[in-house]
Amino acid sequence: MFWEQLINGLTLGSSYALIALGYTMVYGIVQLINFAHGEIYMFGAFAGLFLVLSGVNVFIALLGAMVFCMLLGMLVERIAYRPLRGKSSRLSALISAIGVSIFLSTLMALYRGTNTTRYPEIIGNSTFSVGSIQISSLQVIILLVSALLMVGLQLLIQKTRIGKAMRACSQDLEASSLMGINVNRVISATFAIGSALAAAGGMMVGIYYNAVWPYMGTMAGLKAFAAAVLGGIGSVPGAMIGGLSLGVMEIMGVAYLSSSYKDAIAFAILILVLFIRPQGIMGQKISKKV
């Protein structure tokens, strides 16, 4: 049973990791906790649902949802964060983020109602055995797609021009702008990439659990935030490790302790990390972020 639970945990954790990446990238560059990020994830799940229901192939729907959320993420940044940047304190941007979060979830609740909506079974599911453990094909697909996205993100950050610009901005925003980097464009790109990953996470969670609802982003967002802090906020590999380990710890908590402690585990870890190692697993005290 341990190995099966481990796979359950990794699958759950990969969804946390995909959301945590968005938190960590944005934080790395503008030092903002983008609390609306959970809602972007929720919009990704719904966008994917609409596309799937209109008969689009599931992988094209996944791409569509990612593109939609890219635009949504950029729009949120343009409207709610950019006007505040540099002019007011970071606290105002944080409050603006909370406002956007409430606005987006309520918007979806108005449009779809607060009931849970069924996600159709678009990927035929089968279970197969490896030794004595049973794994569902859906879990394998989710793990593979998540891994692929994370590798893609690493390549983007390490090998491309925009990636280099992002790394520069995370080191020093002002110096980067003096070197001729269009900082606003880099920030916009960061939001776009983070949102696309969240959308992918949202849609895969929808397929995995067959359920989406307007407030799904709130708890997932908080958990992913905890994962990002656990991994070391600002660190991309940290968000991946943080997400996966949080998922595994939660599932193991339910499996061997009690389900009542599920959320408590996530937040107890968050508090412990803040006490013992404030910079997180992968975080460095001298910031070299993204």
Binding site: Q5, N8, Y209, A211, M216, I251, A255, S259, K262
Partner: peptide
């Protein structure tokens, strides 16, 4: 909650 994988595995 939506994740009941651990409970169902048990």
């Amino acid at each position: 909650e939506t994740d009941f994988t651990a409970q169902v595995t048990k």
